[in-house]
Structures are given as structure tokens and as C-alpha cells.
């Protein structure tokens, strides 16, 4: 069983919604990322989503665009991102790492070569935002070959036919896009997300993680009872952007994760069990 499947199974058994933080690898510097990954796990993260920076992140809002730029200016390359993951793997063998990025760096490296190297580094899943099902053939073949889960997005406007095809091809988990918009947008409608998640449940047994638009502990708590996982990106990336040079950056990130963790656990277990929360 893959690390991703094991993790979601363990969370499900514990009545816990997986917390999936996104940070852009190499922001503020490639050297800082490993410590931020550790801090995220210490704060209660179950799965780590690591952004591979791209110069033209079309599906991302201004916060992650700026992070991509900082990471690129700090000299982050796809190969460096894999080095970071390999270093993380020497000390953490249980927390799944998913790379999230765009197609062109993979095109430049070659899908087969990059995915093979990613698997060797200890990457568990790959989400390429601008590789929809129709364009993912080469990546899918390489991912299958090297045991990496290819993770797909499902959007609010994905048709039932596409949903079935995506679920049939997907590995790891389904990334449910909570809203029509870019990452970090503000128009989250929890009830609409709940209905959307129910529809997807009818099409797959894969875990469902919701992302785009989860801004704070309150919105994470709203979605926690609905999904198997909640992805928080822009809010954390904003924190890193605001405090990139601060000596206590990792502590701040750990505390932010802790607050999200607590809010989500509270939402799952109800007020009476509040004292059990860490």
C-alpha cells in the first residue's frame, strides 16, 4: 500500500481529517524548505504538498505567484526540489510528499526522467495543474512505472462523464477544487462544496482532499467534516512571505498548522471532546 493510501486509512480510522499544507519549495530559500517541512509535520500535517516553482503559474493567485518568483530567484530548480525531498526522507519515512506544479518544467526535464528521479527521491504523488486527463498520457505511464500516484483535480464544473474518467485514472487521492477561481480566492461556499463532495463520493472510493480557498482555521473547520483531507496553501505561503527572513519562521508555521489542526479536530469531534485536542 502506498504512503498516501496508508495515511488516509490511518486518519479515517482515527476519525481525523487529513491536514495537507502546501508550501512552495525553495521559498524563501531551498535551504529553508526542509525545516519548514519538519515544522509542518510537527504542527499536525498528515500529507505535505510541495510546490515546484514555475515562472507562469496560471492557476494560482497572487500569493503563490509571488512565492514562485521568490523561490526561482533563490535558485530553486526541479532537481533541487527533489534533493529537498530526499533529505526529508532520510528523517521521515511515513509522511507522504506530493509535488504540485506545472507541465513545462516536466516537459523540459522529460516526464519519464523527472518522475523516475522523483520516485527515487521519495516523492509519493504528483499533481500537475495544467495536465488534465487528456494531456497526461506520458506522465501517467511514467507514474505507473515508477509507483508515483498521479493526482488529478476535480472542479465544481467537471462534468459527470469527465468525473468518471478522472476517477478511473487517478491515484492517491482526488483533489477537489472548492471554487471556480485561482488558489487563495475568497468565495468559498461550504454547502456547495459538501454537495460537490457527495457527488464525487458516488464515483470513487479514493480519499477526497479539498483545496483552493481554505484561508484560516474557521474555513478549514467548515470543510473538515465533509472531506478526507483539507489542503491549505495561500494562507501558509502568505505567512512565509511575510516572515521569510524571521528566525522563528518555522515556529510560526508550526503554530499556524497547530491552529488549523485544532480547528479541524474540534469540528470532527464536537465541542464535548474538545479537551482531547492536542
Amino acid at each position: 500500500m502506498s504512503r498516501i493510501a496508508e495515511t488516509f486509512q490511518r486518519c479515517r480510522a482515527a476519525g481525523r481529517t487529513a491536514l495537507v499544507p502546501y508550501i512552495t519549495a525553495g521559498d524563501p530559500s531551498p535551504e529553508a524548505t526542509l525545516e519548514l517541512m519538519r515544522a509542518a509535520v510537527a504542527g499536525g500535517a498528515d500529507v505535505l504538498e510541495l510546490g515546484v516553482p514555475f515562472s507562469d503559474p496560471m492557476a494560482d493567485g497572487p500569493v503563490i505567484q509571488a512565492a514562485c518568483l521568490r523561490a526561482l530567484e533563490a535558485g530553486t530548480t526541479p532537481a533541487k526540489v527533489l534533493e529537498i525531498v530526499a533529505a526529508f526522507r532520510t528523517e521521515d519515512t511515513t509522511t507522504p510528499v506530493v509535488l504540485m506544479g506545472y507541465a513545462n518544467p516536466l516537459e523540459a526535464a522529460g516526464y519519464e526522467a523527472f518522475i523516475r528521479a522523483a520516485a527515487e527521491a521519495g516523492v509519493d504523488g504528483l499533481l500537475t495543474v495544467d495536465l488534465p486527463l487528456e494531456e497526461a498520457g506520458e506522465a501517467a505511464a511514467a507514474a505507473r512505472e515508477h509507483g508515483v500516484d498521479l493526482i488529478y483535480l476535480v472542479a465544481p464544473n467537471t462534468t459527470p462523464e469527465r468525473l468518471d474518467a478522472i476517477c478511473a485514472a487517478a491515484g492517491g487521492f482526488i483533489y477537489v477544487v472548492a471554487l471556480k477561481g485561482v488558489t487563495g480566492a475568497a468565495n468559498l461556499d461550504a454547502e456547495a462544496v459538501r454537495r460537490h463532495v457527495e457527488a464525487i463520493r458516488g464515483a470513487t472510493d479514493l480519499p477526497l482532499a479539498i483545496g483552493f480557498g481554505v484561508r484560516d482555521p474557521a474555513s478549514a473547520a467548515l470543510l473538515a467534516p465533509v472531506a478526507d483531507g483539507v489542503v491549505v496553501g495561500s494562507a501558509l505561503v502568505q505567512l512565509i512571505g511575510d516572515h521569510g527572513g524571521a528566525p522563528d519562521l518555522a515556529d510560526r508555521l508550526r503554530d499556524a498548522l497547530g491552529a488549523l489542526r485544532q480547528a479541524m479536530d474540534h469540528a470532527r469531534s464536537g465541542p464535548r471532546e474538545r479537551e482531547e485536542a492536542p
Binding site: M58, A59, A103, V129, D130, L131, P132, E134, E135, Y152, L153, V154, A155, P156, N157, T158, T159, R162, I166, V177, K180, G181
Partner: peptide, 10 residues
């Protein structure tokens, strides 16, 4: 081709 995020496919 059509290399876009899922939200634009529909």
C-alpha cells in the same frame, strides 16, 4: 492541445 487546469476544461 489543451493544457489547462481542470476548472477550464468544461
Amino acid at each position: 492541445g489543451r493544457f489547462v487546469s481542470e476548472t477550464l476544461m468544461g
